[in-house]
Design a protein around this nucleic acid. Sequence first.
RNA 1: GCGCGGUUAGCUCAGUUGGUAGAGCAUCCCCUUGACGUGGGGAGGGUCAGGGGUUCGAAUCCCUUACCGCGCACCA
Length: 744
Amino acid sequence: MDKKKEILNPAGIPEKFLKPYDPKDTEDRIYGLWEKSGYFNPDNCVENGKTDKDAKPFTIIMPPTNANGSLHAGHGLVMTIEDIMTRFNRMRGRRTLWLPGLDHAGFETWVVYEKKLEKEGRSRFDIERKQLYQEIMDFTLTNSSNIKSQIRKMGASCDWSREKFTLDPEIVKTVYGTFQKLSDDGLLYRGKRLVSWCPKHQTSFADIEIKDEERTEPYYYIKYGPFTISTSRPETKFGDKYVVMHPEDKRYLDFKDGQKIDLEWINGPITATVIKDSVIDMEFGTGVMTITPWHDAVDFDIAERHHLDKEQIIDERGKLLPIAGEFAGMHITKARPLIIEKLRSKGLIEKVEEKYTHVVHTCYKCGTIIEPQIQSQWFVKMKPLAEKALKKINGGEVEYIPEHYKKITTHWLENLIDWNISRQIVWGIPIPAKICDACDTGYVDLENKITKCEKCKGDVRQDNDTFDTWFSSGQWPYATLGYPDGKDFKTFYPTNVMETAGDIFHWVARMIMLSLYRTNVLPFKTVYMHGMVLDGKGQKMSKSKGNVINPLDLTAKYGTDAFRIGLVIGNTPGTSLALSEDKISTYKKFANKLWNITRFVLESTSEEKLKISNNKSEIDDLKADDLVAADVTHLKTLTDLMKEITGEMEEYKFYLVADKLYHYAWHEFADKILEESKKVFSEGDEKSKRSRAMFLQYALRTILKSLHPFMPYVTEEIWQLMNSGYTKGASTLLMVEKWPNSSR
RNA sequence: GCGCGGUUAGCUCAGUUGGUAGAGCAUCCCCUUGACGUGGGGAGGGUCAGGGGUUCGAAUCCCUUACCGCGCACCA
């Protein structure tokens, strides 16, 4: 040991402090310590007296993470914010449960697995359903350990003993119960309705799985008897036998509703019927359009209103049906130019606008144009569910952070259409229903005992579809807690906070609707929405741009604590955040600063030098009476700060709290108080020295406690070293220490 | 078209109920002070997007314009 070190370390403080803080050497060991303690589980906290028996519960249900996924920056933020909430409330003495969960992520996983099959030269159509399901289950369960270890790496103090998976039997049972109840209450129906269909993936979609894309294509004006219609999709027009115009359009007053008109069409003469409907925009195009109810939402609505025939033109794979005559069997993309050629040769093309820009719906995975199709699927009537939810939300019973998400949510709820919950993929929760293909009737059949169709007495078959992922994840808060009889449901429901990404606010709305429907109670009091995590330049991360930041690279480089607090400071709820490495690097320095602050405090307040008591309770119950005037002032500043930040923690203003603690620790405590202390310890009288030593110990402990939710690893490591290596007293976990007293 | 945000220092963003504009990073200058150079001290830099209004007083409240982002619907 060189001379400098000798001077610095006269009291034999833990060796570790002689080197900079090393997250790599710390984090896994500390996480192991926490897990071993069992205190992630609130029951153990109560049992060991860390939490009072009658303490109020505090519950967060983790949004189920894709079991096949890898931790991305957004997850990093989720885990950080929810862990902050959890640790804060645990330290405040609440019976705190953070319940982790994994999502089978129906379609997401399906796409991944289908690609894997493709690589192996296999096709899902050659594999028996049960086997395929089992293969994907094995694949998912094998992969899930990956994401779980990544969640641990983030320091998440969730209760792994209560971990749930969306395909767990008890979750499925709850979901089935809801399906049955919806049916019993007349809120479920099997209907032939328009669904968004991906011809490549062979399934219907939720809105969120559809990506809007702007395309520039030719736009055709085509003669349709006495009219001219316009379209960008001539290949859908074969069956168009209704021509629609606004009832008040002066140009077409001569044509009467229901009037028949003979005209020459693509494949020969047809008879068209005039329909008057005010949905038509007189300003658009020629003010006349023909309709394709089977493949278009507006057209479908018109057909429903006027009880018109609906005919399928394009099959589920995107090929033309026999109605297309000579074009039957062709894929629509191949058929389009040929159809145009034919129309042109018949003199039916009036003009072509070459560059027409419009938005088309595409599959968010494969980019294939979504082909609406009429299908028999299960639908949930949303209006009654939405109304109940709206009443609660508008009545102020759900707190939204930030508040404007409330408006976005209510706007969405007010415009809901019936929800298609059937998906045509194997990977998911099978729909417990029987289908009669002969008369197209569906029966909810949880007990698997229906064998004959009540209507036509024909045979029924098992519904091969699975539930939309959102239908099951929409029941997450009560399903995970064991509704209706589970002990946890009774203790921890309703939960306190739902923390999730702002762009899936509709998931939150669905949880509110379904929870109200089944439990009659709002599933949570507060909705906390975080924004998107962008790259350092503020751009959306995407694989194609190559700007994806892997959070684990950053935690490896700067430590998890630096990553966590860097993600929190300056990040107000709902606002997107540019993740810059500079910022994370700053907080790595901060972790080290805390390390050195501790080193100084331990060194300068060592027993040998100053003869202060190291009795833990004497430090923690520090009174102003024990201190000299200067320290009384410092104590008051610190106490006021604790009071302030405790309030802000309760208001979920973590970005403020973290920033204030950073400033206090560095620029007040270290830069001012510690500097001033050097003089006190070298020149002051015994009373001042003792007072200062006690205050420094107290302040350090307070800083560590209050920073613990944000930077759990370094604070816990310091705490352990202080308690076991230097000061006396039982070694306890900072994780279950009491939050600093703010009521002095 | 309807709805929701945003526009503050070079960059990223704070700014709680209206009371003389803040932080981090970056820039510049100084300091080998015995916890830490992953350090310390200091400096420069903003007519708070434009316009109007309410007020003794507006970054903050109201109206309006422009631009950026997002959601919903539509796109025949």
